Amino acid sequence: MSKDLPVRVLGGPTAFFEYGGLNFLTDPTFDAPGEYGGPGRPTLRKLAPSPVAPTDLGRIDVVLLSHDEHADNLDHAGRALLADVPLTLTTPSGGSRLGGNAKGMADWETVQLDRPGGGTVTVTAVPAIHGPGPREAVEPITGEVVGFVLTGEGLPSVYVSGDNASLDAVKETADRFGPVDTAILFAGAPRFPVLFDGAPLVLDSAQAAEAARILDARRVVPVHCDSWAHFTEGREDVVAAFQAAGLADRLD
């Protein structure tokens, strides 16, 4: 069933898919290449443009936003897009900052969305930690992050990891929702020497393969592994890691 869910990967963390008659977009990043900086923050450098403009996607019903505080997950064009989207689901603090149609979700909170043809899609917020170590040590530095699981009667389950570096968080999700039909895994092993001694802030390729095993994911769509200078591993590294783990047949 999972192969019936096409996912368009649009660069960085951005992906577009239809689910239950609703169109979902993850972490919108549509700016041209450039640099983003701020007081006390490492400079982020975007290397490649998105292959499409937001207007090329047609109707967007829901944005699944792992967090709003970093430009490699929500850039200027992505932020402008939110005003035209009926619903943005994100972190509790992000919902407060964004206002408008944004709704913050705590871990395990659910939202029911009406499907155009009848029935509902359930979106569940799931744990994510944006860096190594326990949440209480990481969040003061990198901020809140959230992942999502989508379910619905007669539909394959979909996991969107968000900027998560914690396999323990993946296991918590797997304990409630595994096996998962399609896992959209943020990877790329982004690193900054000044943060956590250069440890990955999101899953590296080997951890992404382990996450797929933990979830017993039937299909994995890797995102967040191109287009930005601080992503230290690319899709070729993800492919190699899945091959080494004997999971290459699950990789999309």
Rank of each mutant, 00 (worst) to 15 (best):
Ala102Arg: 13
Asn164Phe: 07
Ala125Phe: 06
Ser166Asn: 06
Gly147Glu: 09
Pro156Val: 13
Ala102Thr: 13
Leu155Gly: 09
Asn164Arg: 08
Gly100Thr: 12
Gly94Thr: 02
Pro132Val: 12
Ala137Trp: 08
Val85Gly: 02
Pro156Trp: 11
Thr173Lys: 03
Asp84Ile: 05
Pro132Gln: 11
Arg176Trp: 11
Pro127Gln: 08
Thr124Lys: 05
His130Cys: 15
Ala106Thr: 05
Ser161Pro: 12
Gly94Tyr: 04
Thr110Ala: 03
Asp114Leu: 09
Gly78Thr: 13
Asn101Glu: 06
Pro140Val: 14
Val170Thr: 09
Pro127Met: 02
Asp163Gly: 10
Gly152Ser: 13
Gly143Phe: 07
Ser93Leu: 07
Pro92Cys: 01
Pro140Asp: 15
Gly99Val: 02
Val85Arg: 01
Pro140His: 15
Gly117Ser: 04
Leu113His: 08
Val121Pro: 04
Asn101Asp: 06
Arg79Val: 10
Gly147Cys: 12
Leu113Ile: 09
Gly118Glu: 13
Val85Leu: 03
Thr90Met: 03
Leu89Ala: 09
Pro92Trp: 00
Val111His: 08
Gly99Trp: 01
Thr122Asn: 04
Glu139His: 08
Ala80Val: 07
Ser96His: 14
Glu109Trp: 02
Leu82Gln: 02
Pro127Tyr: 04
Val146Arg: 10
Ala137His: 11
Lys171Arg: 15
His130Ile: 03
Ala174Asn: 08
Gly133Leu: 13
Leu113Phe: 08
Gly78Lys: 10
Leu98Arg: 12
Leu89Cys: 13
Gly118Cys: 08
Gly104Ala: 07
Thr124Gln: 07
Pro132Arg: 11
Glu136Pro: 11
Ala169Ile: 00
Thr90Pro: 04
Gly133Gln: 10
Val138Gly: 10
Val180Met: 06
Asp84Ala: 15
Val146Glu: 03
Thr110Asp: 03
Gly131Lys: 02
Gly131His: 01
Gly162Ala: 07
Gly100Cys: 14
Ala165Ser: 13
Gln112Cys: 04
Ala128Trp: 00
Thr88Tyr: 10
Thr120Lys: 15
Val138Asp: 06
Thr173Pro: 05
Gly131Tyr: 02
Arg97Tyr: 02
Glu144His: 11
Pro92Ile: 00
Thr90Cys: 09
Leu87Phe: 06
Glu109Val: 01
Pro132Lys: 13
Ala128Lys: 04
Arg97Asn: 05
Pro140Gln: 15
Ser96Pro: 00
Ser157Lys: 03
Pro179Ser: 06
Thr142Leu: 12
Leu87Arg: 10
Lys171Ile: 01
Phe177Trp: 12
Thr151Gly: 05
Leu89Lys: 10
Pro140Leu: 15
His130Tyr: 15
Glu144Thr: 04
Tyr159Asp: 00
Thr110Ser: 08
Val158Cys: 00
Pro86Glu: 00
Lys103Gly: 01
Leu82Thr: 14
Pro127Phe: 01
Pro156Arg: 12
Ala83Val: 09
Val160Glu: 00
Leu81Val: 10
